[in-house]
Computed example of a mutant assay.
Amino acid sequence: MKIVFMGSAEFAIPSLEKLLNSHHEIIFAVSAPDKERGRGKKISFTPLKEFAIEKGLEVLTPINLKDEEFIQKLKKTNADLFVIVAFRILPKEVLQIPQKGSINLHASLLPKYRGAAPIHWALINGEKETGVTTFFLDEKVDTGNIILQEKIKIEDDDNLGSLYEKLKILGADVLLKTIEKIENGFYELTKQDNSLATPAPKITKELCKIDLKRTSVEIHNLVRGLSPHPSAILEYNGKSYKIIKTRLTNFNSQNSETIITTKKEIFLKTSDGYLEILELQPEGRKKMSAEEFLRGYSF
């Protein structure tokens, strides 16, 4: 089939690569506009655009998705399908252009975790499984009819980084299966039950702050869901620390201090006990283990 692929984040790269290696034709890619980044204000591309250019694909980067010139270019492709992975919300006039519709790959088991940060929230909420969903797009975000879903177990040692890697590979496989089903016409749609929907809103700076009134498990899951980036933040004695990795522990103490240290260990007092800090990053410093930190710093 003739496909226009739309995406921006690194999550979309395995999906595009899988389609480029299939018998389908990728007409061109669409990605978010280029941005100035860093002190030097260098122009940088999205990860998807960089990859697409390496593969010799034309890439469009419209600022306004309702721009008439952009819409006309999409119409002239006579595409069978628009495939969207980790991109922006598309206007109705774009969704309705391709003959067979527009499909999206989402990193959750919809209708759970609709929104911008489904992988983060699955970990923050302590879920034991998640997965990927392909569905036909409609006007409301992440609400369209489901084509395929595949589950994956969330391991105890998974964090945002490891789960992201697993889901982007799984997602690419499921997306190709979905496109082949659409091509052959052999698929059944499942309507989403809106009563089971849960939100996955964008991660804010406020959410990243560790609240010591929370339980050890809640803080541990927050750290997992934000690691390695943007990271959970511990504010203590006027200083800020990124907490990269923690471990649930049976450690106990009669000491009322918020942080207790040994020669090699750091324990954080929570509402129901203690949580061991394994990796952290002081402000303006590199990431280090608890033992490395304690050799040169103190709280």
Results as ranks from 00 to 15, higher is better:
2 K>G: 05
2 K>Y: 08
4 V>C: 03
7 G>Q: 02
8 S>P: 02
13 I>Q: 07
14 P>A: 04
16 L>P: 07
16 L>D: 11
17 E>T: 10
18 K>G: 08
20 L>M: 13
34 D>F: 04
38 G>D: 09
45 F>Q: 12
47 P>F: 01
50 E>Y: 04
51 F>L: 07
52 A>Q: 06
58 E>S: 09
61 T>S: 13
62 P>Q: 09
64 N>T: 06
68 E>I: 12
73 K>R: 15
76 K>I: 08
79 A>Q: 12
79 A>W: 14
84 I>R: 00
88 R>M: 13
92 K>F: 07
93 E>H: 07
96 Q>K: 13
99 Q>H: 09
105 L>Y: 11
107 A>C: 12
113 Y>L: 08
135 F>M: 08
136 F>K: 02
138 D>R: 10
142 D>N: 02
143 T>C: 01
147 I>N: 08
158 D>I: 05
160 L>G: 01
169 I>Q: 15
171 G>S: 11
172 A>N: 14
175 L>K: 04
176 L>R: 07
176 L>S: 06
184 N>S: 13
196 L>C: 00
200 A>H: 05
202 K>C: 03
207 L>S: 03
208 C>A: 14
217 V>L: 11
219 I>L: 09
238 G>P: 06
245 K>W: 10
247 R>A: 13
248 L>S: 01
248 L>Q: 11
250 N>Q: 14
254 Q>I: 08
256 S>V: 05
257 E>F: 09
261 T>P: 10
263 K>Y: 07
269 K>N: 04
271 S>M: 01
272 D>Q: 00
276 E>I: 04
286 K>R: 15
293 F>N: 05
294 L>R: 10
